Computed example of a mutant assay.
Amino acid sequence: MYEPLTWTLVGLSLAAMVFAIVLAGRDRRINWTLLAGLGVVEVALIAQLVVGIVQFAGTDRDVSAGFFFGYLVGALLILPLGALWALAESSRWGAGALAVACFVIPVLELRMHEVWTA
């Protein structure tokens, strides 16, 4: 895996999580600024998917394909699902649900890093 991209995704996701928590704490719904930040994270996740596929095809490491691609695709899907949930929820808990989705991304990234370097 391309480690700078992984650590950038972890940082961006945690920053978006903090922003969502602040919105939830202030009893506000998510806004366009947060959605734009999530868009940046999602583009980086798409780039990671492409890089991951290319690197997996050219590696001789003993990497579990099922787990590796499961984490790649799962990380790609979690933010849009969290954003849809947050948009559908009219209370502060929409931002709270999105904060949880943003927290899942670093967890998946770190686990994917472990699978790749094992």
Rank of each mutant, 00 (worst) to 15 (best):
L77A: 15
L110Y: 12
V40N: 05
L45V: 11
A20T: 00
V18L: 05
T6L: 13
I53Y: 02
F19T: 09
V43A: 14
P106F: 07
I46V: 14
V10S: 07
V18I: 03
F68H: 12
F69I: 05
P4I: 00
R26F: 10
G94M: 02
I78H: 02
T8L: 14
T59I: 04
E3D: 06
L77C: 13
M1N: 08
R111D: 14
W85S: 10
L9T: 09
L14V: 04
E42T: 13
T117M: 09
P106N: 06
I21V: 08
P106L: 09
I78G: 04
Q55K: 05
R92Q: 12
F103Y: 12
T33Y: 09
R61E: 13
L9H: 09
L76R: 11
P4W: 00
E114Q: 15
Y71T: 11
V51G: 01
D60C: 04
A86D: 03
F19Y: 13
F56V: 08
L5D: 06
G37P: 02
R111F: 13
M17Q: 09
D62C: 01
Q55C: 01
F67C: 10
G70I: 06
L49C: 04
I105D: 01
H113K: 10
L108M: 15
A101N: 03
A57R: 03
L49E: 09
G58A: 06
Q55M: 09
Y2I: 07
C102W: 00
R92I: 03
L76K: 11
F103P: 02
A99Y: 01
A95S: 12
V104T: 14
L79N: 08
A47C: 07
M112C: 10
L38A: 06
G96A: 15
L76D: 05
I78K: 02
E114H: 14
G66L: 14
L76H: 11
V51N: 04
L14Q: 14
W93V: 02
L108G: 14
R61P: 06
Y71F: 15
V22Y: 04
A101E: 03
P106C: 10
V10Y: 09
F67N: 14
M17T: 00
L72F: 08
F67G: 15
L72N: 08
V51W: 01
L23I: 03
G74W: 05
V54K: 03
L110M: 15
G74T: 08
E109F: 10
Y2V: 09
V51R: 03
V107P: 08
A65W: 04
S13G: 15
V22P: 01
I30V: 13
V100N: 02
Q55T: 03
T8W: 07
R111P: 02
L110T: 14
V43M: 08
P106V: 05
P80Q: 09
F56Y: 15
R92C: 07
D62Y: 00
Q55L: 13
A83H: 04
D62W: 00
W7P: 00
W93A: 03
E114S: 15
W32D: 14
S90M: 07
G94T: 01
Y2E: 13
